[in-house]
């Protein structure tokens, strides 16, 4: 599968599926956070500036439904895009295990950052969000992300 096709598949397909599941079908938190998965995968391919731009756009779309803490998702995903792009300086592995860990940590970080920016009136208790909901949702998103990479042949091609 060509790399440019894969790039656009991630950039367009995953966010579309994310909003289709969460908003269109109304599954809500039972659907994996594919927006974060898409951002983290794209950030590995892009420079920090472009990753921040994509994170900003994704966050803005998510914030369209967030009246209580408008901007929290935008700030969170912009930061996550930058951190994802900078992670290439630290990790270069491309195995399934690496992507599982990378996506899980990134998704958990997204929960943690949003918890910080959401404000006291909206966020739940730190223990519940960061130690229970966050890790479970992060592993769920990471699992789905790795399955997506396997289905698209990325992990097999890279020998992972």
């Amino acid at each position: 599968m060509s790399r440019s096709f894969l790039f656009w598949a991630i950039a367009l397909l995953l966010p579309t599926v994310h909003f289709f599941l969460q908003v269109g079908l109304g599954i809500g938190i039972w659907a994996p956070d594919l927006l974060t998965v898409a951002l983290l995968l794209l950030a590995r391919e892009l420079r920090a500036g472009k990753a921040a731009a994509i994170g900003f756009c994704f966050g803005l779309l998510e914030d369209a439904f967030s009246i209580l803490a408008f901007g929290a998702n935008t700030l969170t995903l912009t930061l996550l895009g930058i951190l994802g792009a900078r992670s290439r300086d630290l990790f270069v592995a491309e195995s399934a295990g690496f992507f599982l860990g990378y996506l899980a940590i990134g998704s958990w970080l997204r929960y943690a950052l949003h918890w910080v920016f959401a404000g006291e009136s909206l966020r739940g208790s730190a223990g519940e969000v960061l130690l229970v909901q966050g890790p479970i949702a992060a592993m769920y998103a990471a699992g789905v992300g790795v399955i997506f990479l396997i289905l698209t042949g990325v992990i097999r091609e890279s020998g992972g």
Binding site: A48, G49, A51, A52, A53, A72, T74, L75, T78, I82
Partner: peptide
């Protein structure tokens, strides 16, 4: 290139913060 990326990143971060306080 690094400097340009840093500027771009900070620009979007600033934009996100601005959205937050609009």
């Amino acid at each position: 290139g690094r400097r340009r990326e840093l500027t771009l990143s900070l620009g979007f971060l600033l934009l996100a913060v601005t959205l937050f306080v609009l």
